[in-house]
Design a protein around this nucleic acid. Structure first.
Length: 660
DNA sequence: GCATCTACAAGTATC
DNA sequence: TTGTAGATGC
């Protein structure tokens, strides 16, 4: 069942292990089999093993697969979760060491962005704000505390950002809250500085298995290092060729860092691919050979050669979409493909638009992955904030979000005043509304509204002690008037239905999670870490997604659209010389295909209303030409595109002249 | 407090 | 060109 390299990776437990696992080489099998091996052969207690992933989806899949290999007791005792969920678990146990009280909140990205905005100088331009958030996040991902960031500041801008960082953390402390970055930074800080705590966790977690290791950032790496300790009970599985998140802080150099920090590191390569046809693999290998490599890796496959890779040359994005839709229909009719065997991948979300149109027209069911995040929906966020506020009355961010949702005639002026009063008496906003002396400082009407709001929360809080989380959601909807507000909203029926549907889905989620015996408060924290990707995929529909979100997936038939210079590789990446990561992105896309790969490009692109002439992606020229089958090559196409670009400029000039 | 208008920006996205 | 965020007016 396992090949010799996979077996070696499973059985090597006595020093740290790095598994360089090519695309489709069965890395999840190695991780899950190794967990089973550690339990059965090495007699390690399941509760002392942690498998760490980047997404909840990957964690869920791993949990399911390992569940088939070990007993249900062992499966329940295992820790299989994301980096952030592990950090959350750590902080829930060690909250006192982090200066947090039980029931602390996890702020989402919007909340923390809002706080930064408040703390930044009034009227700061968006790019300044962006810069501050960037520096702040860099400091946090570097594991720096506000004091360290202040000491390390080298320029006035850095000093300003560090000062804001300091105030930001004070604000979070007052809220009894952490943000996403803190879920890594705080455990890291505690483990690095507190030997007793470190020893306890070394005892608690004896073996770590890390998925998608190339995606770790510096703080995550340090967390792994301190958790694994000198003993080095750790297996990291990753692929430098699939490193596509450097722009998000991932540091692929962490792959080499392992060998420096643990000289006894063993490296095993998995090079047999179990997914793609030979031709597809040859194309992928030849493409990625254009990137520099520290660890040479050559994937091979026992699968059949497969059909040539088609390259569709199209006039424009609409034409491209129509051809893709037509070919998808052919696949379904002639090759008995199910719709969900087909994926259409692209560089940017905006490219989905013409595709959607063409698929609708062709009556092909499709599903957009990751378009709108479920948890970003206003109604879902509102409900979660109610739960946060019930568990953590200090959570001012949650208070501000829901205090006037539904409308309670509590406006900005009232809240401004309340905020000043709360600040002067060092209490949370909700606490302040409970004090008569505070309410007397406000005008009677808003004061009464605030008082009844806090009464309502008290009522819900006492209900939360005995209601299940799912019932609590229903109760909140009813008692706050939220459900009534949706029902009465002037918007059309489909919007109302969608909102109620989302809230029902939220309640269903709670019901499912409740089985783990979690309290409502725990559920609320965990939900902050969930994302849209965790929802079940819809049935038989063509999958449309970005190349980034396709990583880890596989499909029988794959289309990669927009293979043009400027789109893939992206223009900004070309300008800044970041071609290698774009090439890896193409590599990820190609290696998603099991049987048939179709690449397409358009001679013209409409960009921000202007027509541009395109060149086919340089990556197309890097592929083995003998394996490509160019379709619709029209030597006139380029000339035509250039002519039309010129025409569109002429038309613009004419319009300007006419305007004058 | 809400609706409407205007100006601006335009990559990828996890937790 | 399109979407969204912020400002402005009622």
């Amino acid at each position: 069942m396992l090949n010799p390299q996979q077996l070696a990776a499973v059985e090597h437990c006595d020093s740290p292990l790095l598994v360089l696992a090519g695309a489709g080489s069965g890395k999840t099998s190695v991780i899950t089999q190794k967990i089973a091996y550690l339990i059965a052969r090495r007699k390690l207690s399941a509760s002392k093993i942690a498998a760490i992933t980047f997404t909840n989806k990957a964690a869920k899949e791993m949990r399911e697969r390992v569940g088939k290999l070990v007993s249900s007791e062992d499966a329940a005792a295992l820790t299989v979760c994301t980096f952030h969920a592990l950090g959350l678990k750590f902080l829930q146990i060690e909250h006192a060491r982090a200066g947090l009280r039980r029931g602390f909140s996890v702020l989402d990205a919007d909340d923390s962005e809002g706080i930064v905005k408040e703390l930044a100088p009034k009227g700061a331009k968006p790019d300044v704000l962006f810069g501050i958030r960037n520096l702040l996040s860099r400091a946090k991902n570097g594991g720096l505390s506000p004091e360290e960031a202040l000491a390390a500041a080298r320029s006035p801008r850095e000093l300003e950002a560090a000062t804001i960082y300091d105030m930001y953390q004070q604000r979070l402390a007052a809220f009894n809250a952490v943000d996403f970055d803190d879920l890594i930074r705080l455990p890291l800080r505690i483990l690095e500085s507190d030997a007793d705590c470190r020893d306890a966790w070394h005892e608690r977690l004896r073996y770590l298995l890390v998925d998608e290791y190339q995606d770790t950032n510096d703080a995550q790496y340090r967390l792994l290092k301190v958790l694994a300790g000198e003993r080095g009970g750790i297996t990291c599985v990753g692929d430098d060729d699939q490193s596509i998140y450097a722009w998000r802080g991932a540091n692929p150099e962490n792959i080499d860092q392992l060998g420096h920090d643990w000289p006894s590191l063993r490296v095993i390569k998995l090079e047999q691919n179990y997914r793609c046809g030979k031709r597809i693999l040859r194309a992928a290998n030849q493409l990625i050979a254009n990137n520099p490599h520290l660890h040479e890796k050559k994937l091979w496959s026992e699968h059949p050669e497969g059909a040539p890779i088609r390259v569709l040359e199209c006039k424009e994005a609409e034409h491209e979409a129509e051809r893709v839709a037509a070919l998808a229909t052919t696949l379904a009719e002639k090759h008995k493909a199910r719709w969900h065997d087909i994926a259409i991948l692209y560089r940017g979300n905006f490219q989905a638009r013409p595709l959607e149109k063409a698929l609708r027209l062709a009556r092909i069911p499709y599903h957009l992955t990751g378009a709108l995040s479920f948890l970003d929906r206003a109604e879902v966020k509102d409900l979660l904030c109610y739960l946060r506020l019930l568990t953590n009355p200090s959570d001012d961010a949650a208070f501000l979000r829901v205090v006037n949702v539904p409308k309670r005639e509590i406006g900005a002026v009232t809240l401004e005043k309340l905020g000043q009063i709360a600040q002067s008496r060092h209490s949370s906003l909700l606490d302040a509304t409970r004090s008569d002396s505070v309410l007397r400082q406000l005008t009677p009407r808003p004061a009464a509204a605030l008082a009844s709001f806090s009464d309502l929360l008290d009522e819900l809080r006492s209900a939360s002690l005995h209601e299940s989380a799912a019932d609590l959601v229903e109760l909140i909807l009813k008692r706050t008037g939220y459900a009534a507000q949706i029902a009465a909203s002037t918007t059309d029926a489909s919007v109302r239905e969608r909102k109620l549907g989302n809230l029902k889905e939220l309640a269903d989620w709670f019901r499912a999670m409740q089985k783990g015996g979690n309290s409502a408060g725990d559920l609320a924290s965990q939900l902050a870490l969930l994302s849209h990707a965790d929802r079940d995929e819809p049935g038989n529909a063509v999958r449309m997604m970005t190349l980034h979100s396709a990583k880890g997936l596989e499909f029988r038939f794959v289309f990669i659209v927009g293979c043009e210079d400027g789109t893939l590789p992206h223009e900004g990446a070309i300008d800044e010389g970041r071609i290698d990561e774009e090439r890896r992105l193409m590599y990820v896309g190609i290696t998603r295909a099991k049987e048939l790969l179709t690449l397409s490009w358009s001679a013209r692109t409409k960009r921000y209303g202007e027509v541009h002439a395109n060149q086919p992606s340089r990556f197309l020229h890097e592929l083995p030409q003998a394996d490509l089958h160019w379709q619709g090559k029209d030597p006139e196409a380029d000339k035509e595109a250039v002519r039309e670009t010129a025409e569109s400029h002429m038309a613009k000039i004419a319009a300007m002249l006419a305007g004058n």
